[in-house]
Design a protein around this nucleic acid. Structure first.
Lengths: 351, 351
DNA sequence: TGTGCTGGTTTTAGCGTTCCAAAAGCATTG
DNA sequence: CAATGCTTTTGGAACGCTAAAACCAGCACA
């Protein structure tokens, strides 16, 4: 029955290595070994020490370990203010946190100032020896963090590849192109041929261009024309609404959108002309945000495997910590198409 | 020009108190004092030491400080898996993180197992002296954490009051009753009198009952009957849809819902009978989730001041750390009604 | 001249671990 | 029996910091 805990409130003062050692009749070092290198001890001794540790509810002090080993077992994550709700964050963070916990690491949050992360926060954490490594997310064009961290040999992993310049360090990302490609496949199999794409402005976002590319390659593969079928808009519902109109005017029977927000713009444009998503024109979104299944009709969308992304991030990071000079590993995960009511066969040509 | 940093990669090895002290020609303790109790030093000395600290880019090692002072300056937060998307988390976490940073504290995440937080994770963090305090959220009926933490004298603050038993410890919460009350006021001022409430099952959630109570009291204040105007449903869109029907059948011209999800159930029920939210029946949601303004028509909803909640949580926690035995402080913040297109005057009686 | 005070600085002594080298136990061997 | 190797255990020392006590002017006062 573990007596836990070594909190100061528990009578007898805190339980330390020395306390346990005295009680077990061994030296402190032996107790330390029982925990860190059990194979050094005679089985009998090990057993006795372990029992004492259990009885006394001993847990090593993280601060002392950190000081001695120069490793805090902490992973830093700079949390950015979400300008327009990033529905991705909480699932990702939970997955990362859980995977880290299982490996004896924890996540240390620090607030990044609005307007993009600066290096300052990262530097502070490093100098204070507070963290061993970083998880980055929300990486965009020209993000300086990777190069900076790499230069000083700090282990890190990014959720999101580098969109400009050469790749630096390990990353995990979701294959947007593969997602939109799958969306096109899905629509083609339903009988669609005039499939439009509604994305963000070219070059404004790596992920956006990637998603456009997947649509394009799938269309080409099926011998379908993409001329006049590509619309652009910022991630705002009114703008998306406006950008969707010409696509519909051009006779598209289906639209693949780079985000659920853009897909919603299509919904509006359709409603406006008395048409119904799904029945008259199919629509596929991206991200499978919580909103998607609340819409009428429920929106088909591409779900990112965020839990898996989180786990892979931690896996890569641990590997990097174990082998700082190993070759960089990069992982591309597939989004999965969640087909709902907004995708169906095209209406009959005469209708 | 700060030479930063004391990372081992920087030539000359890590910068410690001793290094700085030697360079400045004083004892290590004096450098420590320059940082922690500057008023002890002669202004001249202080200046010289500060300049040296700056030049060398010195930053104290957190681990050593923690070991010595027995205070980690870390606040624990158990992150729970979001079963059905908790759109609240990221904004709250960012606010907490930022406020903590400003006070020299940081947030340490740890993963709570699915199915509610257990005490185990909290105990581990405490025993390892990893954290000084906790922020709790997602508190529900019969949550054991507050009592447990209070018993061992661990400072904590909850986002969310205690819904059963006596209040324990400091908390910050959003006044749900005040929110639904305001929603009724808004609707009454638009001319509505038959205002229904669609909530969760009675007793299933403290927050839900609270929101119902606000509707009830506002109705009573205006001399309006609540008989047959209260619907119940779990937080699922189909269930909400079903629960909304009888309210509409009974002639409600407006519905206040306990969540945006429930409000969406009303949308569906209305569409089904060829009616339009806003034009025919007004609907108000709760939480102002990102979904709200994407809907057609855009959903009026009650926004929780999450940034403020986060900041207040940290403020209370710091106060508690400074004065462990001070009286508990409890803060109730007002949600704000975001009026959008789903609320308008009732249709003329004859129409 | 000694005594007490005050402000500024240093010395000492750990905080609880783990690293390192050395010691002890204990067989096996020359 | 001493020397050799092996496994198991131990005794400092150190990681970087700060609380507490000690120290040391310089000055006022008796």
């Amino acid at each position: 029955m573990p007596r836990s805990s070594n909190s100061p409130s528990a009578k007898g003062g805190p339980v330390t290595l020395a306390t346990v050692a005295r009680r077990a009749g061994v030296s402190p070092q032996t107790v330390s070994n029982a925990i860190n290198s059990p194979d050094l001890l005679r089985p009998e001794t090990l057993d006795r020490v372990r029992r004492t540790i259990d009885e006394m509810g001993y847990r090593p002090s993280r601060a002392a370990q950190t000081l001695r080993t120069r490793s805090s077992k902490l992973i830093g994550y700079g949390i950015q203010p979400s300008p327009f709700s990033y529905p991705v964050l909480d699932r990702f963070l939970h997955a990362v946190s859980q995977a880290a916990d299982e490996a004896g690491y924890r996540i240390l949050l620090f607030a990044c100032p609005p307007g993009g992360p600066t290096l300052e926060g990262y530097e502070e954490l490093l100098d204070q020896h507070e963290v061993d490594a970083f998880v980055l997310s929300g990486t965009e064009h020209g993000d300086p963090r990777q190069a900076w961290l790499a230069k000083r040999g700090v282990p890190f992993v990014s959720f999101g590849r580098m969109w400009s310049g050469r790749q630096i360090g390990d990353w995990v990302d979701v294959d947007g192109a593969s997602g939109t490609d799958a969306a096109v496949e899905h629509l083609v199999s339903l009988g669609h041929r005039r499939i439009a794409f509604l994305g963000w402005e070219r070059g404004s976002s790596g992920a956006g261009d990637d998603r456009a590319a997947g649509w394009q390659r799938a269309m080409r593969r099926h011998g379908l024309s993409t001329r006049g079928r590509r619309g652009q808009s910022v991630n705002d519902i009114d703008a998306a609404h406006a950008a969707a109109k010409p696509l519909l005017d051009a006779g598209a029977t289906a639209v693949v959108a780079a985000s659920d927000m853009l897909a919603l713009g299509c919904y509006r444009a359709l409603r406006e002309r008395g048409a119904a998503p799904g029945r008259d024109v199919s629509v596929v979104g991206f991200d499978d945000s919580p909103t998607a299944e609340l819409l009428s009709p429920e929106l088909s969308s591409l779900a990112q495997p965020l839990e898996q992304v989180g786990r892979e991030c931690v896996r890569l990071l641990l590997a990097r910590l174990a082998a700082p000079d190993a070759e960089a590993e990069r992982i591309l995960l597939e989004p999965s198409l969640v087909a709902r009511d907004s995708t169906a066969g095209p209406p009959p040509p005469g209708g």
